[in-house]
């Protein structure tokens, strides 16, 4: 259409008023000019139906509430069909046959959100077990835990998490407990937490953490509003390699063959819980280790 103008931005420059005076004068005399001027005048008269930002924001907020509520319920069912079935069986049998005890367990790579009778929330990380006594809940808020879980406790009477490594009690707060064999770690995210084990009592305030590994207690401070595993990341702070490998195995249902590796090496770092390749690469490349994955994808062999 505009073969005599080789410049293929010419009309764009005209629209934005970037033509030189001479160019513009010449263009105005051109027989095509009237048609383009008409298109532009018409286009500039166009508008869209108005957009009510305030109204849309209100709609968004009410939708947001709905989806987050749904999502919480959905996570339990979606991630864990069989655990949900197991849990409901436990409840049914629990009530009618074995007395009122509720048990929850997660498999490899799963997390499970459990609503406790008083509205408190417990989120179990992979390969963890927890149980509580529903009928006696009013008198004692007590959860037994093996593995790792994050708790959001509503205000009320003393809330206790009992593990093989010690007890953690609070009044109303958010905290993370990790208890694997010889490793015991508690992170307090809100409020105050008291940690008690055989020969130790410690009060943790928000942002404080406590760890006992091989009878060496340790305290430190951290930032972050919730444990990283809630957002699909496992993170470690100077921890023996053994526990990093254990977490990898639990998240991805794999076996790590580490016979040549010194498992007491201290590791600090993170890996994603939803991408196996990236997780393996992240951990092993920072350690300078080569690895091969077996054909069925379940075993990882390490070479130094």
């Amino acid at each position: 259409m505009f073969e005599d103008k080789k410049d293929d931005f010419f009309l764009a420059r005209w629209v934005s008023g970037e033509l030189s005076e001479e160019e513009f004068k010449a263009f105005k005399k051109h027989p095509e000019y009237q048609y383009y001027a008409k298109i532009m005048a018409g286009a500039d008269a166009l508008d869209l139906k108005t957009y009510n930002v305030e109204k849309e924001l209100i709609a968004l907020k009410s939708k947001r509430e709905n989806t987050t509520n749904k999502k919480k319920k959905g996570t339990v069912i979606k991630l864990l069909p069989y655990v949900a079935v197991a849990a409901s069986i436990a409840i049914i049998f629990g009530i009618f046959l074995f007395g009122p005890k509720d048990d929850f367990a997660t498999q490899y790579g799963e997390t499970l959100t459990v609503q406790l009778p008083d509205g408190s929330e417990m989120i179990l990380n992979a390969k963890s077990k927890a149980s509580f006594d529903k009928d006696n809940w009013k008198n004692t808020r007590l959860v037994s835990l093996e593995g790792e879980a994050f708790f959001k406790v509503t205000k009320g009477s003393k809330f206790t998490v009992s593990t093989k490594n010690g007890e953690v009690s609070v009044l109303g707060t958010q905290f993370n407990v990790q208890s694997h064999n010889a490793l015991f770690e508690v992170n307090c995210y809100e409020g105050k937490v008291s940690v008690v084990n055989k020969n130790y009592t410690e009060i943790l305030t928000a942002g404080k953490a406590y760890r006992n590994y091989g009878n060496t207690p340790e305290n430190w401070t951290f930032t972050g509003a919730e444990p990283t595993w809630l957002t699909n990341t496992s993170s470690f702070r100077s921890i023996p390699l053994k526990y990093v490998f254990k977490e990898l195995e639990e998240q991805y249902n794999i076996q790590i063959n580490s016979s040549n590796i010194d498992l007491t090496t201290i590791y600090t770092g993170t890996f994603p819980n939803n991408n196996k390749e990236v997780a393996l690469r992240t951990v092993f490349s920072t350690l300078g280790m080569d690895y091969t994955i077996s054909e069925d994808g379940n075993t990882v062999v390490l070479e130094k």
Binding site: A37, K38, M40, A41, G42, A43, D44, A45, L46, K49
Partner: peptide, 28 residues
């Protein structure tokens, strides 16, 4: 349904006022 003619007159924006028939707008 959505692209409608702007309420404010267009004279201010384009110095050379061009009368645009409704028919032309629909075609555009």
């Amino acid at each position: 349904d959505y692209v409608t003619q702007r309420k404010s007159d267009i004279n201010h924006e384009s110095p050379e006022f061009i009368a645009l028939e409704k028919e032309y707008m629909e075609k555009l």
